[in-house]
Design a protein around this nucleic acid. Structure first.
Lengths: 258, 258
DNA sequence: GGCGGAGTTGCTCATGGCGCAACGATAAGC
DNA sequence: GCTTATCGTTGCGCCATGAGCAACTCCGCC
């Protein structure tokens, strides 16, 4: 990277060229090495090498006719990862920020990913101890409040699968008895919220409620977590009301009107 | 690029790293520069620079919280470009190859792109003079057989717009009278095929028929083109039968069963 | 068979990519 | 308010990586 006297920031040239290739292919649908090199203004061997890494990573693929390239399904996979979650992340943010400001604790939104919960949003409150950045991190379904809510509303298959395996212990308080967990899941569906009291991490309590998509299906869980001394078990019902309200607001923004 | 004694081809490292960033963001949903740098195993300033070019090109964007990056809608746009067209390209290829083998001329599939036709597939026949690679190239609607077919079945708005503007002349034979073109479009819808006789390029004739999607809408045109002395006007009806058969086969593959 | 053009590979070099260090902004703690 | 730590961002300079050239192989056409 050499210095530039221009006002525009210098871009990493090779990456810029690779991205240009993707755009060329989006427009042209398919093209050979030499055509791409010409359109890009680089030597064909350069085009070939850029295509090689794009192909190895699945961003482009060769058509039936060898040497003819087109966009690959890696792009579709990437897009699929964002369209669903981008909507949820955007729609959940305002409610999470308001709840975090009201209660002063950490607010998260998590989705079901296989047999794990994955956090997609995190907003820290004023009193948050911020011991973790949970975004992108997977947590166990049975030991986190979000996970329990997601599991309570999950398909029969996911539920049976989780309950059919040994439940890992994280603390003395972790629920590892399938029968007890199942009763708790039923309670969650009755009450409309779930919680954990030092079940995943010592000193960490949390309360969660479901977020619904337009068709009423539960697609995420909104939770608030904080240290046990501040978010005590006997405050869960009161806190749950606020969490449900925030989750319902997100559901409405997702198009679910009850 | 240094030589490598390994069997795996050396990849352009900076591009590889940039693509890794896209995958990290697909998994984590959003992340900051320093986190991305750590996960990638590079210095944060390197991560920042790679993100800068990805952001400039719309592949990533910053979340509401500055410094937090997520995948951008440029990815969705790219994906959109391929899912629709990838299906058409794949489904049309066998029929195009068969027709090209039977008639020995060049077979193309074109779609409507704004007020132009864009070729997405080309198969050369044994006798093709291959004067053009039309893939990715735009051609005028009024002067090419594919363009006429697309225009005949286009929305009222597109049709009015094209007919409302002066029609460019390419040869002495180009139809530039709106009234005459309109009558020809009506004839195309009646017969189910269209043609050009040296209207876009001297010596070049072509016959085209519509390809339909599952819902019956015309989404593309399949055409065969060759020199006027081989693909003479008086052979158009007979050739059209073959073209229609091939186009109907593609329509069926696209889910349209008439 | 010869020619031309495509994709692919090896070589070499110089410049572009990258790490280091510094800076400014911000937040948290005392 | 001050200090500390961490983040994102920028400037600098080095060197290894990106890129162009040339050669090779393959294929199609005349």
């Amino acid at each position: 990277m050499s210095n530039s006297a221009e006002s525009a920031p210098a871009l990493v040239q090779s990456v810029d060229r690779a991205l240009s290739i993707l755009e060329i292919l989006a427009r042209r649908r398919e093209a050979g090495v030499t055509d791409i090199g010409k359109e890009l203004g680089v030597h064909k061997s350069t085009a070939f090498r850029l295509l090689a890494v794009l192909e190895t990573r699945g961003f482009v693929e060769q058509a039936e006719e060898r040497g003819t390239y087109r966009l690959g399904f890696g792009i579709v996979r990437l897009a699929g990862a964002i369209t669903a979650q981008l909507d949820l992340t955007r729609q959940s943010r305002p409610a999470c920020e308001r709840l975090a400001a009201e209660l002063g604790e950490t607010v998260n939104v998590a989705i079901l990913d296989g047999h794990r919960a994955v956090n997609v949003t995190q907003v820290l409150g004023a009193a948050s101890v911020a011991s973790h950045n949970w975004v992108g991190k997977q947590t166990p379904l049975h030991a986190t409040s979000s996970g329990k809510v997601l599991l309570a509303y999950a398909s029969h298959g996911v539920r049976e699968s989780v309950l059919g395996h040994a439940l890992e212990r994280f603390t003395e308080s972790t629920v590892t008895d399938a029968g007890r967990l199942e009763r708790e899941l039923e309670e969650i569906k009755k009450l409309g919220w779930g919680s954990t009291a030092e079940e995943y991490e010592l000193g960490l309590n949390a309360v969660a409620a479901p977020i619904r998509a337009a068709d009423g299906s539960v697609v995420a869980a909104l939770s608030i977590s904080g240290p046990a001394y501040r978010l005590a078990s006997d405050s869960f019902p009161e806190v749950a009301e606020r969490v449900i309200a925030a989750a319902d607001e997100v559901s409405a923004r997702m198009g679910f009107f009850g």
